[in-house]
Design a protein around this nucleic acid. Structure first.
Length: 289
DNA sequence: AATCGTTCCTGATAGC
DNA sequence: TGCTATCAGGAACGAT
Protein backbone atom coordinates (compact mmCIF):
# COMPACT_ATOMS: atom_id res chain seq x y z
CA UNK A 1 0.00 0.00 0.00
CA UNK A 2 2.31 2.78 -1.10
CA UNK A 3 1.45 6.12 0.50
CA UNK A 4 3.47 9.34 0.44
CA UNK A 5 6.63 8.07 2.20
CA UNK A 6 6.74 4.93 0.06
CA UNK A 7 6.20 6.85 -3.18
CA UNK A 8 8.79 9.42 -2.14
CA UNK A 9 11.28 6.60 -1.44
CA UNK A 10 10.61 5.08 -4.84
CA UNK A 11 10.94 8.43 -6.61
CA UNK A 12 14.25 9.28 -4.93
CA UNK A 13 15.71 5.86 -5.79
CA UNK A 14 14.44 5.98 -9.35
CA UNK A 15 15.82 9.45 -9.88
CA UNK A 16 19.22 8.20 -8.80
CA UNK A 17 19.03 5.09 -10.96
CA UNK A 18 17.27 5.79 -14.23
CA UNK A 19 17.36 9.48 -15.14
CA UNK A 20 19.03 9.67 -18.56
CA UNK A 21 17.98 6.14 -19.54
CA UNK A 22 15.97 5.49 -22.69
CA UNK A 23 12.95 3.20 -23.02
CA UNK A 24 13.72 0.59 -25.68
CA UNK A 25 10.72 -1.75 -25.42
CA UNK A 26 7.61 -2.50 -23.35
CA UNK A 27 6.04 -5.86 -22.52
CA UNK A 28 2.65 -6.46 -20.94
CA UNK A 29 0.19 -9.25 -20.30
CA UNK A 30 -2.48 -6.87 -18.99
CA UNK A 31 -3.17 -4.09 -21.46
CA UNK A 32 -5.97 -2.71 -19.26
CA UNK A 33 -3.36 -1.25 -16.88
CA UNK A 34 -2.60 1.30 -19.59
CA UNK A 35 -5.29 3.98 -19.46
CA UNK A 36 -6.56 6.54 -22.01
CA UNK A 37 -5.37 4.65 -25.10
CA UNK A 38 -4.58 1.16 -26.32
CA UNK A 39 -1.27 -0.51 -25.61
CA UNK A 40 0.16 -0.27 -29.13
CA UNK A 41 -0.45 3.45 -29.33
CA UNK A 42 1.02 3.93 -25.84
CA UNK A 43 4.07 1.87 -26.74
CA UNK A 44 4.80 4.00 -29.82
CA UNK A 45 4.77 7.14 -27.70
CA UNK A 46 7.16 5.76 -25.08
CA UNK A 47 9.76 3.79 -27.02
CA UNK A 48 12.84 5.83 -27.85
CA UNK A 49 12.07 8.42 -25.20
CA UNK A 50 14.64 9.51 -22.64
CA UNK A 51 13.87 9.93 -18.95
CA UNK A 52 14.59 13.58 -18.17
CA UNK A 53 13.43 13.68 -14.56
CA UNK A 54 11.26 11.86 -12.03
CA UNK A 55 8.95 13.49 -9.51
CA UNK A 56 5.93 12.96 -7.32
CA UNK A 57 2.56 14.58 -6.68
CA UNK A 58 0.66 12.90 -3.85
CA UNK A 59 0.92 9.21 -4.56
CA UNK A 60 1.44 9.74 -8.31
CA UNK A 61 4.83 9.09 -9.89
CA UNK A 62 5.69 11.52 -12.68
CA UNK A 63 8.24 10.47 -15.25
CA UNK A 64 9.18 13.52 -17.33
CA UNK A 65 10.02 12.62 -20.91
CA UNK A 66 10.68 16.18 -22.03
CA UNK A 67 8.76 18.15 -24.70
CA UNK A 68 5.78 18.42 -22.30
CA UNK A 69 5.30 14.64 -22.33
CA UNK A 70 4.71 12.74 -19.11
CA UNK A 71 4.52 9.10 -18.15
CA UNK A 72 2.28 8.91 -15.08
CA UNK A 73 2.15 5.90 -12.79
CA UNK A 74 -0.14 5.33 -9.81
CA UNK A 75 0.49 2.11 -7.91
CA UNK A 76 -2.82 2.11 -6.00
CA UNK A 77 -2.94 -0.76 -3.50
CA UNK A 78 -0.80 -3.67 -4.59
CA UNK A 79 1.29 -2.00 -7.26
CA UNK A 80 5.08 -2.15 -6.97
CA UNK A 81 7.62 -0.44 -9.18
CA UNK A 82 10.71 -2.59 -9.27
CA UNK A 83 14.05 -2.16 -10.99
CA UNK A 84 15.82 -5.33 -11.97
CA UNK A 85 17.30 -7.58 -14.52
CA UNK A 86 14.76 -10.31 -15.18
CA UNK A 87 14.66 -13.07 -17.71
CA UNK A 88 11.37 -14.25 -19.17
CA UNK A 89 11.36 -18.06 -19.06
CA UNK A 90 8.26 -20.14 -19.84
CA UNK A 91 6.10 -17.07 -19.31
CA UNK A 92 7.63 -16.45 -15.86
CA UNK A 93 9.85 -13.55 -14.90
CA UNK A 94 12.99 -14.75 -13.13
CA UNK A 95 15.25 -12.30 -11.27
CA UNK A 96 18.71 -13.87 -11.16
CA UNK A 97 20.17 -11.95 -8.23
CA UNK A 98 19.52 -9.71 -5.23
CA UNK A 99 16.46 -9.47 -2.96
CA UNK A 100 14.22 -9.69 -6.02
CA UNK A 101 15.35 -13.22 -6.86
CA UNK A 102 13.16 -14.69 -4.13
CA UNK A 103 10.43 -12.08 -4.20
CA UNK A 104 6.88 -13.45 -4.61
CA UNK A 105 6.04 -10.20 -6.41
CA UNK A 106 7.85 -11.60 -9.45
CA UNK A 107 4.69 -13.62 -10.07
CA UNK A 108 2.70 -10.45 -10.66
CA UNK A 109 4.80 -8.52 -13.15
CA UNK A 110 2.28 -7.16 -15.64
CA UNK A 111 4.07 -4.28 -17.37
CA UNK A 112 7.82 -4.33 -18.04
CA UNK A 113 9.73 -1.37 -19.49
CA UNK A 114 13.07 -2.32 -21.05
CA UNK A 115 15.78 0.31 -20.57
CA UNK A 116 18.85 0.95 -22.71
CA UNK A 117 21.22 -0.30 -19.98
CA UNK A 118 19.82 -3.87 -20.03
CA UNK A 119 17.78 -3.33 -16.89
CA UNK A 120 13.99 -3.24 -16.69
CA UNK A 121 11.55 -1.11 -14.77
CA UNK A 122 8.62 -3.36 -13.91
CA UNK A 123 5.16 -2.89 -12.48
CA UNK A 124 4.09 -5.77 -10.29
CA UNK A 125 0.43 -5.65 -9.32
CA UNK A 126 -1.50 -8.59 -7.90
CA UNK A 127 -4.88 -6.84 -7.98
CA UNK A 128 -4.39 -4.89 -11.18
CA UNK A 129 -5.70 -1.60 -9.78
CA UNK A 130 -2.64 0.40 -10.80
CA UNK A 131 -2.76 2.83 -13.67
CA UNK A 132 -0.20 3.90 -16.21
CA UNK A 133 -0.76 6.64 -18.74
CA UNK A 134 0.89 8.96 -21.18
CA UNK A 135 -0.15 12.60 -20.73
CA UNK A 136 0.72 16.00 -22.05
CA UNK A 137 1.83 18.41 -19.34
CA UNK A 138 -1.39 20.44 -19.47
CA UNK A 139 -3.49 17.27 -19.08
CA UNK A 140 -1.36 16.37 -16.08
CA UNK A 141 -1.96 19.75 -14.51
CA UNK A 142 -5.68 19.35 -15.09
CA UNK A 143 -5.59 16.00 -13.24
CA UNK A 144 -3.64 17.53 -10.39
CA UNK A 145 -5.99 20.49 -10.00
CA UNK A 146 -8.31 18.14 -8.12
CA UNK A 147 -5.65 17.32 -5.55
CA UNK A 148 -5.10 18.95 -2.17
CA UNK A 149 -1.82 20.42 -0.93
CA UNK A 150 1.42 18.53 -0.34
CA UNK A 151 1.78 18.14 3.44
CA UNK A 152 5.59 18.28 3.44
CA UNK A 153 5.98 21.40 1.31
CA UNK A 154 7.17 24.56 3.06
CA UNK A 155 4.07 26.49 2.02
CA UNK A 156 1.85 24.01 3.84
CA UNK A 157 1.60 26.04 7.01
CA UNK A 158 -0.50 25.38 10.08
CA UNK A 159 -2.64 28.44 9.34
CA UNK A 160 -3.43 27.09 5.87
CA UNK A 161 -4.24 23.69 7.31
CA UNK A 162 -6.53 25.15 9.97
CA UNK A 163 -8.47 27.14 7.40
CA UNK A 164 -8.96 24.03 5.26
CA UNK A 165 -10.73 22.33 8.16
CA UNK A 166 -13.15 25.16 8.76
CA UNK A 167 -15.09 24.35 5.60
CA UNK A 168 -14.90 20.59 5.97
CA UNK A 169 -17.33 18.13 7.55
CA UNK A 170 -17.35 14.43 8.25
CA UNK A 171 -15.22 11.94 10.11
CA UNK A 172 -11.60 12.92 10.60
CA UNK A 173 -10.03 9.71 9.28
CA UNK A 174 -11.96 9.87 6.03
CA UNK A 175 -11.06 13.54 5.60
CA UNK A 176 -7.35 12.82 6.11
CA UNK A 177 -7.50 10.14 3.42
CA UNK A 178 -9.37 12.38 0.97
CA UNK A 179 -6.79 13.27 -1.69
CA UNK A 180 -8.70 16.40 -2.66
CA UNK A 181 -8.28 17.64 0.92
CA UNK A 182 -4.64 16.71 1.41
CA UNK A 183 -2.49 14.34 -0.63
CA UNK A 184 -0.40 11.36 0.32
CA UNK A 185 -2.12 9.95 3.41
CA UNK A 186 -3.61 6.48 3.08
CA UNK A 187 -4.93 3.89 5.46
CA UNK A 188 -1.78 3.13 7.42
CA UNK A 189 -0.65 6.69 8.07
CA UNK A 190 -4.19 7.93 8.81
CA UNK A 191 -4.45 5.51 11.73
CA UNK A 192 -0.95 6.33 12.97
CA UNK A 193 -1.45 10.10 12.69
CA UNK A 194 -4.68 9.96 14.69
CA UNK A 195 -3.11 7.78 17.37
CA UNK A 196 -0.32 10.30 17.85
CA UNK A 197 -2.86 13.13 17.90
CA UNK A 198 -5.03 11.24 20.43
CA UNK A 199 -8.16 11.61 18.32
CA UNK A 200 -10.76 8.93 17.61
CA UNK A 201 -10.92 8.09 13.86
CA UNK A 202 -14.68 8.70 13.80
CA UNK A 203 -14.46 12.11 15.47
CA UNK A 204 -16.39 14.75 13.55
CA UNK A 205 -14.43 17.74 12.27
CA UNK A 206 -17.01 20.01 13.90
CA UNK A 207 -15.95 18.75 17.35
CA UNK A 208 -12.27 19.50 16.89
CA UNK A 209 -10.52 22.51 18.37
CA UNK A 210 -7.48 24.48 17.22
CA UNK A 211 -5.32 22.46 19.57
CA UNK A 212 -6.46 19.26 17.83
CA UNK A 213 -5.71 20.74 14.41
CA UNK A 214 -2.25 21.63 15.64
CA UNK A 215 -1.65 18.10 16.93
CA UNK A 216 -2.85 16.59 13.66
CA UNK A 217 -0.74 19.00 11.63
CA UNK A 218 2.40 18.13 13.59
CA UNK A 219 1.65 14.40 13.51
CA UNK A 220 1.20 14.44 9.74
CA UNK A 221 4.50 16.18 9.09
CA UNK A 222 6.47 14.28 11.71
CA UNK A 223 5.20 10.80 10.88
CA UNK A 224 5.56 11.19 7.12
CA UNK A 225 9.09 12.53 7.54
CA UNK A 226 10.04 9.80 10.00
CA UNK A 227 8.78 7.16 7.60
CA UNK A 228 10.71 8.63 4.66
CA UNK A 229 13.86 8.38 6.79
CA UNK A 230 13.07 4.72 7.42
CA UNK A 231 12.51 4.22 3.68
CA UNK A 232 8.82 3.54 4.05
CA UNK A 233 6.51 0.95 5.39
CA UNK A 234 7.09 -2.72 5.84
CA UNK A 235 3.83 -3.87 7.34
CA UNK A 236 1.99 -4.08 4.05
CA UNK A 237 3.76 -5.72 1.13
CA UNK A 238 5.58 -2.54 0.15
CA UNK A 239 9.13 -2.78 -1.05
CA UNK A 240 11.62 -0.40 -2.57
CA UNK A 241 12.59 -0.60 -6.25
CA UNK A 242 15.37 -2.98 -5.14
CA UNK A 243 12.89 -5.34 -3.50
CA UNK A 244 13.81 -4.33 0.05
CA UNK A 245 11.39 -3.64 2.87
CA UNK A 246 11.22 -0.31 4.64
CA UNK A 247 11.62 0.23 8.37
CA UNK A 248 8.39 1.96 9.40
CA UNK A 249 7.31 -1.15 11.35
CA UNK A 250 9.87 -0.09 13.94
CA UNK A 251 7.72 2.87 14.95
CA UNK A 252 4.22 1.66 14.06
CA UNK A 253 1.81 1.95 16.99
CA UNK A 254 -1.70 0.85 16.00
CA UNK A 255 -1.95 -0.28 12.39
CA UNK A 256 -2.68 -4.03 12.19
CA UNK A 257 -2.28 -4.31 15.96
CA UNK A 258 -5.85 -5.29 16.82
CA UNK A 259 -6.06 -7.02 20.19
CA UNK A 260 -2.50 -6.09 21.16
CA UNK A 261 -1.64 -3.71 23.98
CA UNK A 262 -1.46 0.03 23.38
CA UNK A 263 2.13 1.24 23.70
CA UNK A 264 0.96 4.11 25.93
CA UNK A 265 -1.62 2.56 28.25
CA UNK A 266 -1.79 -1.17 27.60
CA UNK A 267 -5.44 -1.11 26.54
CA UNK A 268 -6.28 -3.45 23.65
CA UNK A 269 -6.12 -1.84 20.21
CA UNK A 270 -9.45 -1.99 18.37
CA UNK A 271 -10.30 -2.23 14.69
CA UNK A 272 -13.42 -0.69 13.18
CA UNK A 273 -14.61 -0.43 9.61
CA UNK A 274 -14.80 3.13 8.34
CA UNK A 275 -15.94 3.67 4.77
CA UNK A 276 -14.77 0.18 3.93
CA UNK A 277 -11.35 0.70 5.48
CA UNK A 278 -9.89 -1.02 8.49
CA UNK A 279 -9.19 1.62 11.12
CA UNK A 280 -7.05 0.94 14.18
CA UNK A 281 -7.08 2.94 17.41
CA UNK A 282 -6.70 2.77 21.17
CA UNK A 283 -10.13 3.19 22.81
CA UNK A 284 -8.56 4.71 25.93
CA UNK A 285 -6.05 7.14 24.36
CA UNK A 286 -8.39 8.16 21.54
CA UNK A 287 -11.73 8.74 23.25
CA UNK A 288 -14.65 10.20 21.30
CA UNK A 289 -15.69 13.66 22.44
C1' DA B 1 -22.10 21.31 -3.60
C1' DA B 2 -20.40 18.03 -0.69
C1' DT B 3 -20.63 13.60 1.06
C1' DC B 4 -21.62 8.67 0.79
C1' DG B 5 -21.84 4.08 -1.45
C1' DT B 6 -20.38 1.11 -5.13
C1' DT B 7 -17.18 -0.68 -8.14
C1' DC B 8 -12.89 -2.36 -10.09
C1' DC B 9 -9.69 -7.11 -9.22
C1' DT B 10 -7.59 -11.28 -7.39
C1' DG B 11 -4.53 -13.42 -3.72
C1' DA B 12 -4.82 -14.92 0.91
C1' DT B 13 -7.32 -16.88 4.33
C1' DA B 14 -11.09 -19.02 6.89
C1' DG B 15 -14.53 -22.42 7.13
C1' DC B 16 -16.59 -26.60 6.03
C1' DT C 1 -7.75 -32.47 0.91
C1' DG C 2 -9.92 -29.33 -1.74
C1' DC C 3 -13.57 -26.53 -2.66
C1' DT C 4 -16.20 -22.14 -1.89
C1' DA C 5 -17.04 -17.72 0.40
C1' DT C 6 -15.22 -13.68 2.35
C1' DC C 7 -12.13 -9.91 2.79
C1' DA C 8 -8.77 -6.16 1.67
C1' DG C 9 -8.29 -1.62 -0.28
C1' DG C 10 -7.22 3.83 -3.59
C1' DA C 11 -9.84 6.47 -5.98
C1' DA C 12 -13.21 7.25 -9.96
C1' DC C 13 -17.80 7.47 -10.49
C1' DG C 14 -22.69 7.64 -9.65
C1' DA C 15 -26.27 8.49 -6.34
C1' DT C 16 -28.28 11.33 -2.77
Amino acid sequence: MPELPEVETIVRDLRKEIVGRIFVDIWTDTESLIKKEDFESFKKKIIGRKIIDIGRRGKNIIIDLGSDDILLIHQKITGHLLLGNWELKDNKWIAPEGPLSTDPMNRFLHVVFYLDDKRQLALSDARKFAKIMFLKKDELEEEFDKLGPEPLEDDFTFEKFRKMFLKKKGKIKQVLMDQSFIVGIGNIYASEILFRSKIHPEEKIENLKDEDFKNIYNAIRDILNESIKLRGDSFSDFRTIYGEKGGFHKIIKVYQRKGMGCVNCGEKIERINLGGRGSFFCPKCQKKR
